[in-house]
Nucleic acid binder design. Structure first.
Length: 418
RNA sequence: GUGGUCGUAGCUCAGCUGGUAGAGCAUCCGGUUGUGGUCCGGAAUGUCGCGGGUUCGAGCCCCGUCGAUCACCCCA
């Protein structure tokens, strides 16, 4: 065993599992593309200040989970802990916020959070996300939610639920938080809990302890503080979701970890994952762009956890599709035909066929075994006889039947039977 | 970050009250001269996570450390 190990808490995907990871990610992305979202490719590190201002100093993510370092020029750099702030920065920097609206983009890649690792919680993890910027319509909220839900359904996931709520506008939040703090102040709770509440009083709604849950049962509910406009917006979102045939439950005590959320907020929770059950979440962020120096546009987006969604598929024992098989596997017999064999493979590959070769100077039996393992649809044994005659037997690996083909026209013969 | 559990061949694991390691699967080779999947035979493989300690002797005991995992916390 090598003395080197992957850094603590990172997830890695390699064959066979990597093809499942790839399939999950592509399915998520495809859903976004079908709704008109376009790729935005961003750096994995940004100015530390961007996250401090965007995500919020008081959040756990910013206050204790960021990978922050000084670069060679003395700048404070942070590995992105989430995607939205970077997208906003880029959109503002390249003046997309002054062009035609909405801006609809998707991204995919690694994110970094220095937490204690657990199954489904990694220090480097993968997200696919989308952002729709510059629209107030509640219909776009529903679209964003539907992009995620559609992808989950396409993967075959069933054992999950969508929770939605409305966090209201800044004014709502201010008056609500004030009342909630007042209420919490009357509670008999331990010091650690009180400190958590001081940072973000909503956190107490998420407490797992029975006593705390009971205490919070009679706490004021944010939903009661919504302005008429916010309430109407939220109602319309629900109307759309129902019309789309998307099931949801209203969770009026949902807690989101990022400060910028306003209005519609949502979470997808999978029931088969243990403690790290959130497979995706997002919401609307009204003040974020202005806060970061851009136009005062609203936006809505989500981040989906690719690692956890793969775990969810595995928990539900979903058979993810196999990668399309090799079309031909060539077994060369002996040193003298090796060059001809690899050249034939190369020629076919240039033509767009998926071809592999039994390398490693295996005997015929080993070569055929390799052909079998490869999952190729056809196998072709290439020995000195075949080279001399210019013909060979093309063997169908499923049926075991073989037919004679001429090497020069192999490409056409293959296309006929594939 | 806090607490618990675990760490033996590529994988899944066994290893009795301490006497320097095994099984199944996978891999490779072969079962008469050039065709795979079954079956049979054979081979290779581990500094028992790492570092200390106790002991005549440790995979088994103790301490530390690294990693995974579970819960808290947090969230994707």
């Amino acid at each position: 065993m090598s003395k080197f190990q992957a850094p603590k808490g990172v997830s890695e995907y390699f064959p066979e599992r990597s093809k499942h990871f790839g399939f999950v990610r592509e399915t998520l992305i495809a859903s976004a593309r079908r709704s008109g979202y376009e790729l935005i490719e961003l750096p994995v590190f940004e100015d530390t200040e961007l996250f401090a201002r965007g995500v919020g100093e008081s959040t756990d993510v910013v206050s204790k989970e960021m990978y922050t370092f000084e670069d060679r020029g003395g700048r404070s750099i942070t590995l992105r802990p989430e995607g939205t702030a970077g997208v906003m920065r880029s959109v503002i920097e390249h003046n997309l916020d002054r062009g035609q609206l909405p801006v609809k983009v998707w991204y995919s890649g690694q994110f970094f959070r220095a937490e204690r690792p657990q199954l489904g919680r990694y220090r480097q993890f993968y997200q696919v996300g989308i952002e729709a910027i510059g629209l107030q319509d509640p219909e776009i909220d529903a679209e964003v939610i539907a992009v995620a839900d559609t992808a989950f359904k396409q993967l075959g996931l069933k054992n999950y639920r969508l929770e939605i709520t409305s966090l209201g506008d800044a004014i709502t939040r201010e008056s609500y938080t004030k009342d909630l703090r007042t209420y919490i102040a009357t509670l008999d709770i331990d010091e650690a809990t009180r400190e958590r509440a001081a940072l973000n009083p909503l956190r107490l709604f998420d407490d797992k302890r029975e006593e705390v849950r009971n205490l919070m049962n009679s706490a004021p509910i944010l939903m009661d503080y919504l302005t008429q406009e916010s309430a109407a917006h939220f109602t319309r979102v629900q109307e759309c979701l129902s019309s789309f045939g998307i099931d949801f439950v209203i969770n009026n005590r949902m807690v989101r970890g990022l400060d910028y959320y306003t209005g519609t907020a949502f979470e997808f929770v999978h029931m088969g994952l243990g403690a790290q059950s959130g497979i995706g979440g997002g919401g609307r962020y009204d003040g974020l762009m202005a806060q970061l120096g851009g136009a005062d546009l609203s936006g809505i987006g989500f981040g989906l956890g690719v690692d956890r969604i793969l775990l969810a598929c595995e928990a539900e024992q979903i058979a993810l599709p196999e990668e399309s098989a090799l079309q031909l596997f060539i077994v060369p017999l002996g040193e003298n035909v090796k060059l001809a064999a690899v050249t034939l493979a190369q020629t076919l590959r240039v033509e767009g066929l998926k071809v592999d070769v039994a390398y490693g100077d295996r005997a015929l039996k080993g070569g055929m075994k390799a052909a079998d393992k490869s999952g190729a649809r056809f196998a072709l044994v290439l020995g000195e006889n075949e080279l001399a005659s210019g013909t060979a037997e093309l063997k169908n690996m499923q049926t075991g039947e073989s037919s004679s083909v001429t090497l020069r026209t192999l490409q056409e013969d293959l296309k006929k039977v594939l």
